[in-house]
Amino acid sequence: MPRKPVAREAVLDAFEALLIEVGERAATLDAVAAKAGVSKGGLLYHFPNKEALIQVLLDRLDGLAGADADAMAAAGEGAAAYFIRTSVWADTPLDRAIVAATRLAEVAHEETRRRFAAIQQRWLDEIAADVGPALAKAVLYMGDGLYFNAMLSVGPVPPGGAAADVDELLAALERLRR
């Protein structure tokens, strides 16, 4: 009798959460099974090994990033403004997938690095279609900087927080477009 897809998603969600919380080395199959509330046999039914879990997590990341790039391309405000505006931590499924996959890239997982490069290139292509190739990398770095700083912030959030930073960067983008 086939297992419910809910169990498979629970295992994948648990793996993602463990990568975020404790990193790749501690995200063992036993830890994933325990966090998902399934037996190790139940986990192995869906994912025969850790690499299979990684591949499905990367597929999830690809799907979420692809949907984001499609939304970026269709954004009325333009791809560049969309990218900057959405480059803040919001605990979305895409945010969680990015951070979890980053933990894999940290340990030099080559497939993860390859997938990140492809995602980044798609984003760069969408931004370049909006503002041209010369400005596209600057926009990419603005968004990456926002995201990175949001992930590292540990102290009190300044008045206006990330929204003020986004507004300042959007204003800078408009000045650069001229």
Rank of each mutant, 00 (worst) to 15 (best):
D125C: 05
Q121H: 13
D144L: 09
R114L: 02
V107T: 15
Q120R: 13
R103A: 12
V139F: 06
G143T: 03
F116G: 00
E126R: 14
I119D: 00
D125A: 14
A138L: 12
A108P: 00
Q121S: 07
E110M: 14
A138I: 05
L146E: 07
L104W: 15
L135V: 12
A138Q: 02
R115K: 13
M142I: 06
A117D: 03
Q121A: 15
A136W: 12
L146D: 15
L135F: 10
V139M: 09
E111M: 13
D125R: 08
G143F: 01
D130Q: 04
W123Q: 14
R115C: 00
A128L: 13
R122S: 14
A128C: 14
A138M: 08
A117E: 07
A134H: 02
R113Q: 05
R113L: 15
P133N: 01
E111P: 13
V131M: 10
H109I: 12
Y141C: 13
P133L: 07
L146T: 08
T112D: 11
R113C: 01
K137T: 02
V131P: 09
E126F: 02
G132M: 04
R113H: 04
A108Y: 11
G145Q: 06
D130F: 05
D125T: 09
R122T: 13
R115P: 00
